[in-house]
Structure formats: structure tokens, C-alpha cells
Design a protein around this nucleic acid. Structure first.
Lengths: 96, 96
DNA sequence: GTAAACTAGTTTATTTTATAAACCAAATGA
DNA sequence: TCATTTGGTTTATAAAATAAACTAGTTTAC
């Protein structure tokens, strides 16, 4: 009946990050922070979890002398997100 | 951009319970346990949280000599669920 | 009639998560 | 130069989910 929801994506902040990355393909840490209203610490932790899960790719470099962290979604990330959205439907089945 | 998700509903088990109660209006503890595949302990805890939030009503009685716990959704529960589903859309906006 | 197994839960303890607070290294500005 | 800001990370704390243990009673089998 109810499909298990991917716990990595069933988190408000991680879901927001993946949601953004699905549409923009690439985003800076600061951009994600602004769009999600997350604290830097929280975002840092959650980005690492997404990276460890293989859902995003993180590239660190420097831009205008400042450190810069760029995140991109991976094919696994896209797939996991689509699966999550599909699974979620079973919980929201008011639309019949 | 991203609306905050109701933390009481953003939980797999509680969401499943509310989802069921939205469609059946009334359900026994044992029925919910079977449908959600939850352990009794976990279900007991989560039912209490939903009750404390005012999202469900819990009536205890006896049936065939055994204790029986019946849960029903409240108007606030229905409203919170609908709001949650709506808020969730902002995270899933792949459909444009 | 009494021990073993089962029903229907609750409570407590443990693990996992989420979040906040504190920190770091470097850059900028007064 | 030293206080502030940027762009983070690490560590500590709070909250949540989950499991394990327990309660209270019932049924079944001897």
C-alpha cells in the first residue's frame, strides 16, 4: 500500500536542494542557502549527505578570492527524486 | 519559494495514518498497524502526536473483551493535510 | 486451573536526524 | 591593524523516529 519513502530525500532541506538542482542543474552554496533559507551549518551537513548518497556532485574552487562550492545533480539524484515523488503519491491519494 | 512543511505531517508514518483516515474516516489501531506495517510501539507514539496536535480523535473502548482504539480525523486534521499537500507541491515542481 | 501463547496496546530506551552554535581561514574595509 | 564579512566546516544539542521491553488482560491447551 504505502511505499517506503527514501529517507535521504524525505527531509525538507535536502528535498529543497535536490528540487532546485533538478531545475537549474548547477548551483552555488550561497545560492542554495539563500533560496532555502537554511543556516550555513545545516546546509553544509545536508549537502554532504546528498553527496555521500551519490545524489549530487560537489566541486570546490575559488571565485573572486573566495571559496566557492558548486553543486550539481547526478543521474542517480534525478532518478531518486523521481522515484520519491512517485512513492509520495501513494500518501497523497486524495485525487481519485 | 519553499513553504515550510508541517513537521507533524512530514513524517512517513504520521502521514500514512492521516492519509488512511482521510479516506476511511475511522480506523482501529490494529487496522492502521497492518496497513502501515508499523510496529505497535511506533504507531502508539505517532498516534499520540497526531492526537496532541488535534489532527485526530482517539476513542478507547473494548471489543470482544479486548481493548480497542479507534481513530478519526478531525476537521483540523483534514485542513492540515490539505495544506501540507499544497505546500509540498513547491518542492516537486517538475510539472510545468 | 494453570501455564503458555496471544491480543492490544503503552512506556522507556536507543538510535538517528535535524538544527544550532561555535569555530576556522582568508578577504575586505575603516 | 583590527574589526567585520565571506564562505564555509565541525562539534554540540535538541528533537524525532524507532525498537525493545513491559503492562494488562484473554484465549487455548493440557
Amino acid at each position: 500500500m504505502f511505499k517506503d519513502l527514501n529517507p535521504i530525500l524525505h527531509s525538507q532541506l535536502r528535498l529543497a536542494v535536490v528540487s532546485i538542482l533538478i531545475t537549474v542543474k548547477e548551483a552555488e552554496f550561497t545560492y542554495l542557502k539563500e533560496k532555502t533559507n537554511a543556516t550555513a551549518g545545516n546546509l553544509s551537513v545536508q549537502i554532504n549527505k546528498l553527496k555521500e548518497a551519490g545524489y549530487i556532485e560537489v566541486v570546490k574552487s575559488f571565485k573572486d578570492n573566495y571559496p566557492q562550492t558548486i553543486c550539481k545533480i547526478t543521474p542517480q539524484g534525478v532518478q531518486a527524486f523521481e522515484e520519491y515523488v512517485k512513492d509520495l503519491q501513494t500518501y497523497l491519494n486524495i485525487k481519485k
